[in-house]
Computed example of a mutant assay.
Amino acid sequence: MAQPGGHQEARDFYIGVLDMEEIPLPKEIAGQFDLLWFRFLDMMIHLSFSDDYIPVPVGRHICLEVSGLLKLRTRLEAAGFKIEDQVKLADRDRFFIPDPFGNYFELMEFHALE
């Protein structure tokens, strides 16, 4: 879910920051619902812009495995995004980031155990 009218913020984040592709809505639902769809690899994110928007807590999130996590973290921090570190795990580096609407993403990169 996203705040009504937040379409450009969504595009700035999902396309500009996370490098996703915006997907046109199917003609069957275009115009009936206030939605934006984005694709990242073989996954899709569907955002609904509705009046009953409620921010989501960090406990509910999507986890994306990325390469170059440190470079991405640096880019996100430079852009002013709030990075939230969580409990360290032995086999991966990770952090959380909210999108402009409070939907959380865990971004992580596995590494070899020493």
Rank of each mutant, 00 (worst) to 15 (best):
F81Y: 15
L89H: 09
F95R: 14
A78C: 03
N103D: 01
I23G: 00
L18Y: 02
E109Q: 15
Q32K: 15
H46D: 12
F38N: 00
L25E: 08
F33A: 10
Q3S: 10
P100C: 13
F105L: 15
F40G: 04
I15E: 12
G5E: 06
F49L: 02
I97L: 01
E65T: 14
H7W: 13
V66R: 03
G59Q: 08
E21D: 03
A112P: 05
Y104N: 13
D93I: 04
P100Q: 08
V56C: 05
L41S: 06
D51V: 03
F81M: 08
G102L: 13
F101H: 13
H111S: 04
I83L: 04
G59M: 02
K71A: 11
L35W: 13
M1V: 09
F40R: 10
F81G: 02
P98W: 08
D93S: 15
E106W: 05
Q86S: 14
I45K: 01
G68T: 04
G80M: 14
E22C: 10
H46A: 15
V87L: 06
E65N: 10
F81T: 00
G59A: 01
I54K: 14
R60C: 09
R92K: 13
I54A: 13
V58W: 00
F40E: 00
F110I: 09
E22Q: 14
S48G: 05
Y14C: 14
E106M: 05
N103I: 02
R75I: 06
T74Q: 10
R11P: 01
L70H: 15
Q86C: 09
R94A: 08
D51E: 15
Q3H: 06
P57F: 07
V56S: 09
R39F: 08
I62K: 05
Q8I: 04
G6I: 03
Q32M: 07
Q3F: 03
I62T: 15
A79F: 00
